[in-house]
Amino acid sequence: MNDQASHTLEFDQLRALVRRGAQTSMGCARVDALVPLDALEELQKALAASAECVQLRKRGATWSFSELREPAEAIARLRVEGASLEPLTILELAQLCEQAMSARAAIMAEREESPVLAEIVASLPRELNSITARVANKILPGGDLDDRASPELARIRHEIARLRSSITRSLENLMRRSEEAVQDDLVTIRNDRFVIPVKADHRGHIKGVAHGFSSSGATAFVEPLETIDANNELQSLRETEEREIYRILFALTEELRLQLAGIEKAADAIAKLDFINSKAVFHQNFNCVIPEVSMAGQSFVRDSSVSSNPFKRTTSQTEVSSTRVLEFLEARHPLLEENLRASGGAVV
């Protein structure tokens, strides 16, 4: 279709109507790339997919692709050997796999009535379910690692909690013994180390390392000598924790990397299904009819048709001659219907 025809038909605005039904950026991209089809087999397959999706929606067999980010960047990084993914990126890929496999389950349960849709998801590997479960057991929704992500991480965090409590108790006891020198009865943290607020003119009363002053200069934040060794140990434990977190994330990344081909299939399946579903939503919103297209001699014949995408609608038979000229009978432009709805006019 040339630019003049596209402008005359207001095709961009038509695509915008269909885009409303897309749930992902991948689906939106496919809608934006939508053009009329002129290959019979491709057209029949696209219409069959739309028809199957419409029927599945009527039977309540739907799928949802909620809060999915564009996976291209994460997949590209996954292709880099030795690269480790951040926890939120791992969660995003796991969510992609989970929603793709959920759609697969819904469609395969109806595969006899939905062969075209089944073809899209049939090759998704079941291993995606396993990796999704492993990620969910190790990474919390906010991106932090669960204490049970590994026995070593659980041990390290237990030690950190024990040591933090011990340091806090020691500092609280010290503040009670040195009330006249303490500005506030509050243990705080400076430079990742536990300190107490000491009056600047009483610094000599508490031996230790100063980690800065308040904005007024009236308070010095002092790490007492008696907790320096414990603070050093705490710092060492935190570094050990970071190394263990990196090890776990790298291992999960490697598991995802082993399933790279399946993840790419999952992303492609979601893009296709979201695109098809957006057309089914359009079908529902505008009470469309899925056309049946077949070869009759050198002609295409459409019964009860809309256009291939489907943007046009008619209740009468339309024929396409060997010169492929379309004639739509009793058709209505969806944009006109949309404008009528917006203005409160009657759609007849």
Rank of each mutant, 00 (worst) to 15 (best):
M1G: 03
M1R: 01
D3L: 14
D3R: 15
S6W: 05
H7K: 15
T8N: 04
F11E: 02
D12N: 13
Q13P: 09
L14D: 07
A16W: 11
R19G: 15
Q23P: 10
Q23Y: 11
T24S: 09
M26V: 07
R30Y: 07
L34N: 07
P36M: 13
E41Y: 15
E41G: 15
E41R: 15
A46K: 12
A48H: 05
A49D: 02
A49R: 08
A49C: 07
S50M: 13
A51H: 14
E52N: 13
C53A: 14
R57E: 08
W63T: 08
S64Q: 13
F65K: 05
S66C: 03
E67Y: 10
E70D: 13
P71R: 05
P71D: 00
A72G: 00
R77S: 08
R77N: 06
L78M: 02
R79Q: 06
R79K: 09
G82Y: 07
A83M: 03
A83Y: 04
S84H: 00
P87C: 13
T89G: 03
I90C: 03
I90M: 05
E92K: 09
L93D: 02
A94G: 12
L96P: 04
Q99T: 10
M101H: 01
M101S: 05
E110T: 01
E113V: 09
S114A: 15
V116M: 09
L117C: 03
A118T: 04
E119T: 10
A122K: 10
R126F: 06
L128A: 05
L128I: 05
S130K: 08
T132C: 05
R134P: 00
V135G: 00
N137I: 04
K138L: 02
P141M: 08
G142T: 06
G143R: 12
E152R: 15
L153N: 12
L153D: 11
R157E: 07
E159H: 14
I160E: 15
A161D: 14
L163K: 12
L163Q: 08
R164L: 14
S165Q: 12
S166T: 13
I167E: 00
T168C: 10
E172P: 00
E172Q: 10
E179L: 11
E180T: 09
V182N: 11
V182E: 05
I189M: 12
R190A: 13
D192H: 15
V195M: 00
V195F: 01
I196Q: 02
P197Y: 10
P197K: 07
A200E: 04
D201S: 03
D201W: 01
I206D: 00
G208Y: 08
F213W: 10
F221P: 14
L225R: 03
N232P: 01
N232M: 05
L237R: 01
L237C: 01
E239L: 13
E244P: 00
E244T: 05
L249D: 07
L252W: 02
L256W: 05
L256E: 03
L258M: 14
L258D: 12
K265V: 02
A269L: 06
I270T: 06
I270E: 08
A271P: 04
K272N: 04
P291C: 09
E292I: 07
E292F: 10
S299P: 02
F300H: 03
R302Q: 11
R302T: 10
S307L: 09
S307W: 08
S308E: 00
S308K: 00
P310R: 14
F311R: 04
T314N: 02
T315I: 14
S316E: 07
R324T: 04
L326Y: 09
L329C: 05
E337T: 11
R341Y: 12
R341H: 06
R341A: 07
